[in-house]
Design a binder for these strands. Structure first.
Lengths: 194, 194
DNA sequence: CGAAGGTGTAAGCACTCGCTTACAACTAGT
DNA sequence: ACTAGTTGTAAGCGAGTGCTTACACCTTCG
C-alpha cells in the first residue's frame, strides 16, 4: 500500500500517514472501537509517535474531522451540499473499502469525547452551510433537521445496514429525500403574505 | 432507591432488577460504554448472576430491547407511532434521569454486536408498524426513511445535544417533522391518477 | 435429619485499552 | 568530529474489560 521501501525520519510524512490511517479506521469502526495501536500499525508507524504528534486519541479525531470536512465543504457551493452528502452516503456503502468521511461521525457520535468534537465541527460547518438554503426565520433549525435526516439515513443504511433501505436503489431514495427536504425548507413561518 | 431492606433468594426479582438496571444504563451510555459491573451494581446484585441469567452482555441487550419495544409498540395503533416516538424523543432529553427506550438503540447501534440485535428488532417491529401508514408500493422503504429521520433527530438532539435542534421548542420541531412525514408517505408512484 | 439443588458471593483469569518512559538511531550545525 | 536536537522503537504501567470458577448459603423434599 505504501509506495516507498521504508519511510525514514520524515515527520511530515509520518503525520500524514497517521492521519490517513486514522481517517479510514474511524470511518470503518468509529472512535471508540478504533485503537491507537490499529492506527499506528496501519500507518506503519510506532504508536508512541501518534502521541508525540497528536497528543491524544481525541485530538487525533479532531484533526481527522477538520481535515475531511474541509475537503467536503470548503470551496463548494452550498446548494449542492445535501445532494453531495446523500450521494456519498448512498454510494459508498455496500461494497468494499472506501467509506464516506461522514461515516466516521456516524460511528463515533455516541462516545462523549468524540461528540464534543462533533458538536463544534457540525455547528460551524454543516449547519451553517445548510442554513443558507432557506430564508425562513428558523433556518438553522431546519438545517439541523435536514442534517438529522441525512445522518439518520446514513445510520440506518450504511452503519446499521438495515433492509430495505440498505438495499434500495440510490435514485429512488434520493427522489424521496430531495422532495422531503425541499418541502422542509419552504418558507412556512409567515402563513399568508401574498 | 430500592424499597425493600434486602432482596434475598428470589430469582425472578433478581432478573427483573438486572433488566431494569440494564435498560437504564444502555439508554444512558449505550451498549459498549455500559459495563456488566455497572449493571450488576445498579441492580444491587452480584455480577456473576448476570451471566447466570442472561448468558452474555449481548443477550442481556437483546432482552432489554425486546422488553422495551414490546411496551412501545404492541397493542398501540400504528397511526400514532411516529408521533409517539417523536414525543418521547423531544420530551425525554435535556432534563434529568429518564431516558427514552429508543436512546438505548441510538447509543448502541455502532457496536456490531448490538447492531445485529437491532436489525432484527427494528425490521420486525418498527418498520412493519410504520409501513402500514402508507399504501404506496415502496411502503417499507418509506417507512425506513421515516424511521431514519426520527432516529437522526434523536441522534442530533438527544445524544449529540447539538444546537439549535437540542434547544428547539418541541412543538416547532414536531410541526416540521409531521409535515415532512406526511409528504413522504403520500402516494407518488402513480404520478397522475385523479 | 440429610442429601440435592437453586441462589448468592469473592476472587481472579486472560486480555485490551490509552498513554508513558527510557533509550537507540539518525541528521544538522558548528 | 563532536554536540544538540529530532525522529523512531521496545517495553511496560495502571486501569478496566467480559466472563469463569470455587465455594458458601438457604430452601425444599424424601
Amino acid at each position: 500500500m505504501t509506495g516507498g521501501p521504508r519511510r525514514k525520519r520524515d515527520s511530515a510524512a509520518t503525520k500524514e500517514a497517521l492521519l490517513q490511517a486514522a481517517s479510514a479506521l474511524f470511518a470503518e469502526r468509529g472512535f471508540s472501537a478504533t485503537t491507537v495501536r490499529d492506527v499506528a500499525t496501519r500507518a506503519g508507524v510506532n504508536q508512541a509517535l501518534l502521541f508525540r504528534y497528536f497528543g491524544s486519541k481525541q485530538e487525533l479525531f479532531a484533526a481527522v474531522l477538520d481535515h475531511n470536512s474541509t475537503e467536503l465543504i470548503a470551496g463548494q457551493p452550498p446548494e449542492g451540499l445535501p445532494r453531495r452528502i446523500l450521494d456519498g452516503l448512498l454510494s459508498a456503502d455496500q461494497l468494499s473499502g472506501e467509506e464516506h468521511p461522514i461515516a466516521a461521525m456516524l460511528r463515533s457520535y455516541s462516545d462523549e469525547r468524540a461528540a464534543h468534537v462533533l458538536r463544534e465541527e457540525l455547528g460551524a460547518r454543516y449547519t451553517a452551510g445548510l442554513a443558507e438554503l432557506t430564508d425562513a426565520e428558523d433556518a438553522e433549525l431546519r438545517a439541523d433537521l435536514v442534517l438529522a435526516w441525512l445522518f439518520g439515513i446514513g445510520m440506518v443504511r450504511s452503519v446499521l445496514g438495515k433492509s430495505p433501505l440498505a438495499q434500495a436503489d440510490p435514485d429512488a431514495v434520493a427522489r424521496h429525500v430531495t422532495r422531503g427536504i425541499s418541502v422542509l425548507l419552504e418558507r412556512t413561518d409567515l402563513p399568508d403574505e401574498r
